[in-house]
């Protein structure tokens, strides 16, 4: 696709953009997680990828906690092994959660039905969707104004297959550098975990930011104040993550073309 066409599409996007500013349509998140996200909340109609090392599942629960406390419903698919007791401790109101167990073949139909009605749809790591399934889900979520949170990551090193990051996500969160406290050689018990979350993406998330959290902390998700401004990219941090990591030329234009298609 040539540069002219991309420019034409961009202008088309400007024309069809809704009048409501997108940051006005956000779902609230826990205060500790606000810094991670553009417009300090889960922007309706977007898709998030939560990955990285151990802690991804907890972070996904933390993201779902704010909306449930504000009265939104959360649906969960392909998360057979999620520990809901942990979700409750991280602040998820379990009275606003529905869990769907589906065969991989039904995944697309089930998620499509769920984004129609649920504010947040949590997609667990049991199923690796095809690229076109993800893009279709993203389009549907954008149209319906719900938030899709995909959970993956390297897994906890127990031989479970690694879930590849989803293509075309708006925000990508990676959990890193976990360290547990409260436990020693035969004494204490697991109490809290300090992690670093790196957030990248597009639309206001072009620069990777790093936020340190206690996940879980004593009262759910706790922020950790770092010396220096926490919003800045840490100088020794790794390079920004690529958001669109599926190979292919003209990926950006492809996504733009996808966005410009009328709903």
């Amino acid at each position: 696709m040539s540069g002219d066409q991309v420019a034409a599409l961009r202008s088309l996007i400007e024309q069809v953009r809704p009048v409501t500013a997108s940051h006005e349509r956000t779902l609230p998140v826990l205060p500790a997680l606000e810094q991670l996200l553009p417009f300090r909340g889960l922007q309706r109609g977007t898709m998030l990828w939560v990955g990285g090392g151990p802690g991804a599942t907890s972070l996904a629960f933390g993201l779902a906690a704010g909306p449930t406390q504000a009265g939104s419903w959360v649906a969960c698919v392909a998360g057979r092994e999620f520990g809901w007791a942990s979700a409750a401790e991280l602040g998820v109101d379990l009275h606003r959660v529905a869990v769907v167990r589906s065969e991989p073949a039904d995944w697309a139909a089930v998620t499509a039905a769920l984004v129609d009605a649920f504010d947040v749809v949590l997609c667990g790591p049991d199923h690796q969707p095809e690229r076109n399934q993800v893009l279709r889900l993203a389009a549907r979520a954008r149209e319906r104004g719900s938030v899709v949170v995909a959970v993956g990551g390297d897994g906890p090193g127990v031989g479970r297959g690694r879930v590849r990051p989803w293509p075309g996500v708006d925000v990508r969160l990676d959990v890193d550098d976990p360290s547990w406290d409260g436990i020693g050689a035969g004494w204490g018990s697991l109490r809290g975990r300090q992690v670093a979350v790196r957030a990248g993406g597009r639309h206001g998330m072009d620069r990777t930011r790093r936020v340190d959290l206690r996940l879980p902390g004593d009262g759910g998700v706790e922020p950790i104040e770092r010396s220096g401004s926490p919003g800045d990219r840490s100088p020794d941090g790794p390079s920004p993550l690529p958001v669109e990591d599926t190979p292919g030329d003209g990926t950006d234009a492809e996504v733009l073309a996808f966005r410009a298609r009328p709903a």
Partner: peptide, 19 residues
């Protein structure tokens, strides 16, 4: 929506957490 999903995956597969 849950009623619709029940039609897709069956009644037993749509669950809610209870303490």
């Amino acid at each position: 929506a849950l009623a619709r999903v029940q039609g897709l995956v069956g009644h037993e597969s749509v669950l809610v957490p209870e303490r």
